[in-house]
Design a protein around this nucleic acid. Structure first.
Length: 490
DNA sequence: AAATGTGTCAACCGCGCGCTC
DNA sequence: CGAGCGCGCGGTTGACACATT
């Protein structure tokens, strides 16, 4: 019945008023409102008050459906509307609220006098897009840490379902619940034990900004320290490399295949069936996607890609030590973590500069490489490369602990980290680089059940070393959670 | 200067909820 | 109790302006 879909067209789509008009087809206007139409609507509301929007078309000359009238009134004509850009306070409020309640625009608008849900929604979507493009997490780290700590000490009283539209607070709740819950002790897996140890040995989860929420192996549940960025845009400090981050990703993915949150925290575990009833499939991949506001799962890859390509890894530590180095670019990047649009703009520019700098420096360092090789590596194509020079170059690029451009002291500390990385790698005895499964980019909106049936085909762990699991009895319940991983390599 | 990309704004659409009959 | 209706919400899209290449 719609003659056209578009702006400024006349439609005979009677929409909601169909029934009320007894089947009379009324040509309704669509598209932008004119001043004259506004005047008519204003006058009507002045006389009749808000509501009964379908009556507007009946009682006035307006050729607009009730919905359109309501929208026009709510977003443009009603009194006390605030126009213009959001203030920093408003932006902060929006970010806070979104972290708490998710995409509840109307509820947010209720907290922001004079602002409409549409405005807030537009603002958020723009911000989201921008952060995604920059490979940044949606929420400022401070906020996340605050939320996580808060949720951690709250035992959920009811089941939590995690969906793509979940607020981050609910996701964090789920992670915190899993973290503190008593988990099933059966179905041990050697790989899982190793994963546990691996994770426990990690002090920083670089490249996976929000993976800490899933890291229920951290006994203190403390938030990991972020990486630092030196003045070449290269990462340094505590943390682990791109390769190890991928291993950690893999661990999370493995975990996703079998880790169910039983959110009935006090319910007795069912030793036989651990994943079929009353459990919510816990999908770290999807959660990470959501954590960064990206339901299409590109966030992790974006982050890794950023590091891989440029050697740059963003630090979330707004108050990080790097700022004290007088590193302006770093400061700008860190400032961008406020999540405010103005800072974001500056941040993305700084990231670009950092990236350019690091590429320049690395290219200079390994000047003997051909341009093609350089581009190949940037593209992640390292297949069949055995040139030592290239390997060094690869290391500089892949590792989060490049020493290029560092002073001796920093370089020494970073070298230590690289050694640690290698140790961790050797513990897992993984071929390097670890392949990212081809299904890794699957949207988190995909039915979670898919994950349980999709083995990561590209993960190639030849064998897993026999590492004694850390079975200390210091009350580290979280081990149980990982022990709950089953069927991973069966 | 033209093409392309990006941001912003405004509007439409489908869906679900609650009320009324 | 169920159908019809009004309304609100959240997702999506299109137009336009501006920035970048």
């Amino acid at each position: 019945m719609v003659s056209h879909v578009g702006r400024g067209v006349i439609s005979n789509n009677s929409g909601e008023i169909g029934g009320g008009l007894g089947g009379v087809h009324v040509v309704l206007k669509k598209g932008p409102w004119t001043a004259a139409e506004d005047a008519v609507l204003l006058e009507y509301v002045k006389r009749q008050g808000e509501g009964n929007w379908n009556a507007v078309q009946k009682n006035t000359s307006l050729q607009r459906c009730g919905k359109s009238c309501r929208l026009r009134w709510a977003n443009h004509l009603r009194p006390f509307l605030r126009k213009g850009p959001f203030t920093p306070e408003e932006e902060k409020t929006i970010i806070d609220l979104h972290a708490k309640i998710g995409n509840k625009w109307a509820r947010m608008a209720a907290q922001l006098p004079g602002r409409t849900d549409n405005e807030i929604k537009n603002y958020w979507n723009t911000r989201l897009k921008r952060r995604q493009r920059a490979g940044l997490p949606v929420y400022p780290m401070e906020l996340l840490q605050q939320q996580f700590n808060h949720r951690l000490h709250q035992k959920p009283s009811q089941n939590i379902t995690v969906s793509p539209s979940s607020s981050f607070a609910s996701i964090i709740s789920a992670a915190a619940a899993a973290s503190s819950s008593t988990c099933h002790q059966n179905q041990h897996s050697r790989l899982n034990q190793n994963s546990v140890n691996f994770i426990k040995n990690c002090t920083s989860l670089d490249l996976l900004d929000y993976s800490p929420y899933l890291n229920n192996m951290n006994p203190s549940n403390s938030f990991p320290l972020p990486r630092q960025v030196n003045n070449n845009g290269l990462t340094s400090g505590n943390g682990f490399s791109y390769q190890n981050a991928q291993l950690f990703n893999q661990a999370l993915l493995e975990k996703s295949l079998s880790f169910d949150i039983n959110l009935g925290l006090n319910s007795a575990p069912d030793p036989v069936s651990t994943s079929t009833t009353n459990t919510t499939s816990f999908d770290p991949v999807g959660l990470l996607g959501m954590a960064t506001g990206n339901n299409e799962l590109s966030s992790i890859q974006n982050t890794i890609q950023t590091s891989n390509n440029s050697g740059y890894t963003r630090s979330d530590d707004v108050k990080g030590e790097a700022s004290s180095d007088g590193d302006e670019e770093y400061d700008k990047v860190a400032r961008g973590n406020s999540g405010l649009l103005g800072d974001l703009l500056e941040e993305s520019q700084s990231i670009k500069r950092c990236k350019d700098n690091s590429e320049k420096n690395i290219k200079a360092e390994y000047d003997g490489l051909s341009a093609d090789t350089f581009q190949d590596f940037k593209a992640g194509n390292t297949n069949g490369l055995s040139n030592p020079k290239h390997e060094a170059y690869s290391g500089a690029f892949i590792s989060g602990h490049s020493t290029i451009g560092m002073n001796d002291e920093k370089a020494e500390a970073t070298e230590e980290m690289n050694i640690m990385d290698e140790d961790l790698l050797s513990l897992l005895d993984c071929p390097s680089p670890v392949c990212i499964p081809d299904w890794y980019g699957v949207s988190s909106s995909t039915n979670n059940s898919n994950y349980s049936s999709r083995e990561p085909s590209n993960i190639t762990i030849a064998h897993v070393p026999n590492i004694k699991a850390d079975e200390d009895d210091d009350g580290d319940e979280s081990i149980c959670c990982w022990n709950n991983m089953s069927r991973v390599l069966s």
